[in-house]
Write a protein that binds this DNA or RNA. Structure first.
Length: 587
DNA sequence: GTGGAGAAGATTTTT
DNA sequence: TCTTCTCCAC
């Protein structure tokens, strides 16, 4: 047999479905990619492939993701496959901001963060005779309305507030995150501009397409010609952001709006065992075997009942200890240590529907001396002292000067005279380099933990770079190699994968959440079940109280949808033994 | 600007 | 039930 030529690195190891998605040419492509089917791999490989045969120029292609982290990952993969080619990979918001800057230059609106946006909404409320408190309280509704294009503002007061808010932003040349998308759409309403953009960026790839908001969907439509080279990848079964306007229906609508769309479905799943896939599918009412597991093991899901949330939390803590090879008698009692291979703490995730459910779990982990990291921990970057430093820094860089001056401690009067001197002094410095001087000017104590966190983040930002994106990442505040169990909401777990997953609080009136769309709740549970690659434990407890209200304490109706053959119901866990608190502090 | 009393509001979240 | 916000007196 003649030696077959080795495939290029970006094609190596792809299955036929993945290969079809990567190699497709000519017209719109929709890739339906279930959990663990190699979605990110395919997106990056397709970008590399389009470059490798000259279909795309690096500058004529854009890949859009939802988070900066995902963008960085995809950028890195493409660069690795293409000998360092720099491809534009951006979030919708990041791209929109760059587009506005390019199109409007100095007239482009400057983005403010959520806290400032809320304050401006309070000011806008006051201008139309509402209380500032009402403006602040209703800002989330305004923001939700602005996920639509044109904004959808169901009541008259809200419409007035939104109009005043937009005017307030516009007066200072500002915009909020939602406004970035809306401004870009407004510009692209001009046919000449739209055509020019389509010429400049003939190739568009969109990740996590099931999560696009209505306005973002319109943006995709404006950016891509109907028969153009547009690729969207997503999983309608994992659409869990309905509360901000996303809907699995956009995947179906894409096929109508982009006639001639080729559809590729990735069915080979590399993360989960077949049992987990089938159980998760059953929750959605899908037939078994819809996704094919690559791995041979067929572990059953464990379903465990507890008397109360405290017992649930303590058992989880001991089970975690067991999974990572804790040798306490209690861990052995819980029947979790034997036979399991030892794992690292970061292989374990504990998931739940609402953050409040994490409290007993966090307490139990702390009592056992098990390090953990909570995704909902408040970012130190929201601290008033950090905000003041960032304001002064922005003003010293000449960004949004008037806006920040009014909001610095002491107000405009205290800073107007000092600012020119600071600007000269700090010119050309990075935030890290400028930090000591900023703290001095603001008379802040550098030993403040929030400011120490800022210093750590700032040290990683190169001079001249806009610090905003890096500062927005609470993940940056934690030591990256932190060896800790992850505590995550089901939403926050999307896109992640762990060998061992516990889902706490699988109970009625938690899952599904009352008043929420039950189908979306089922998809949320589906997301949770498909995070696990080796062991999956579903816990429920009686006597749960939430916001002082008693919940029924029954298991979630979703558990009934899982075929008994796939699950291993264990009654109340082994009697709680003596706990042995060890002193080992976390942060 | 601080602190205490009382009210309100308490899913999910990225940019 | 508990935390956070708001308002007003100091």
């Amino acid at each position: 047999m003649p030696p077959s030529p080795r495939p290029p690195a970006h094609l190596a190891g792809l299955n036929p479905e993945q290969l079809a998605a990567v190699r497709h040419r000519g017209g719109p492509l929709l890739v339906e990619a279930g959990p663990g089917t190699g979605k990110t791999r395919v997106l990056a490989a397709r970008a590399a492939d389009l470059l490798s045969d000259g279909t795309a120029r690096a500058g004529g292609m854009l890949a859009v993701t939802f988070t900066n982290q995902a963008a960085a990952e995809i950028r890195g993969r493409i660069a690795a496959w293409t000998g360092g080619t720099e491809v534009r990979v951006a979030t919708f918001h990041g791209w929109a901001l760059a587009f506005l800057n390019e199109a409007l230059g100095a007239a482009a609106p400057a983005p403010v963060d959520e806290a400032d946006a809320r304050e401006l909404c309070a000011e806008a409320a006051a201008e139309i005779g509402l209380s500032p408190a009402e403006g602040r309280r209703r800002w989330p509704e305004v923001s939700t309305g602005r996920q639509h294009h044109p904004p959808r503002l169901p009541d008259e007061t809200l419409a007035r507030l939104a109009a005043a808010y937009e005017a307030r932003l516009g007066r200072d040349g500002l915009t909020d995150f939602d406004g970035l998308i809306l401004h870009a759409l407004r510009l692209l309403g001009d046919p000449g501009r739209r055509a020019a953009l389509r010429r400049a960026l003939p190739i568009l790839l969109v990740d996590e397409f099931q999560d696009v908001s209505p306005a973002q969907y319109e943006l995709v439509r404006a950016m891509a010609a109907p028969g153009g080279e547009v690729t969207v990848i997503g999983d309608p079964d994992q659409a869990i952001y309905g509360f901000r306007g996303a809907s699995p229906a956009f995947m179906a609508r894409f096929r109508r709006d982009f006639p001639g769309t080729t559809v590729v479905r990735l069915r080979q799943a590399y993360r989960c065992p077949q049992t987990f896939l089938d159980a998760a599918g059953a929750v959605l009412g899908a037939e078994a075997g819809r996704l094919r597991a690559d791995r041979p093991e067929r572990p059953r899901l464990e379903v465990r009942a507890f008397a109360d949330p405290g017992a649930e939390a303590r058992w989880i803590a001991r089970a975690v200890e067991g999974a990572v090879g804790g040798l306490s008698h209690d861990a052995l009692d819980a029947g979790t240590a034997g036979g399991d291979r030892l794992r690292s703490l970061s292989d374990v995730a504990i998931l739940y529907r609402v953050n409040a459910l994490a409290d007993p779990v966090a307490a139990a982990l702390a009592a056992s001396g098990i390090p953990f990291q909570r995704a909902d921990a408040r970012s130190p970057l929201d601290h008033p002292s950090v905000r003041a430093v960032r304001r002064l820094w922005e003003a010293a860089c000449g960004r949004r000067v008037a806006f920040h001056l009014d909001r610095l401690p002491g107000g405009r009067a205290a800073w107007e005279a000092r600012l020119p001197g600071l600007r000269v002094e700090l010119h050309g410095r990075s935030l890290g380099g400028a930090l000591p001087r900023l703290l001095e000017a603001l008379d802040l104590d550098p030993r403040d933990p929030a400011l120490e966190a800022l210093a750590r983040v700032a040290a990683r930002i190169p001079p001249g770079a806009d610090p905003a994106p890096a500062l927005g990442h609470p993940a940056d505040l934690v030591a990256p190699d932190l060896e800790a169990v992850r505590l995550l909401s089901l939403h926050a777990a999307k896109g992640l994968e762990f060998p061992v997953v516990f889902v706490a609080g699988c109970e009625a009136e938690v899952l599904p959440w009352p008043g929420a769309d039950p189908e979306e709740e089922a998809r949320l549970f589906y997301v949770g079940l498909t995070r696990a690659s080796e062991r999956l434990v579903l816990c429920h407890a009686g006597r749960r109280r939430l916001h002082g209200r008693r919940l029924p304490g029954r298991p979630s109706p979703f558990l009934d949808r899982i075929p008994p053959a796939l699950r291993e119901a264990r009654g109340p866990a082994a009697p709680a033994g003596r706990r042995r608190p060890r002193q080992r502090t976390l942060f």
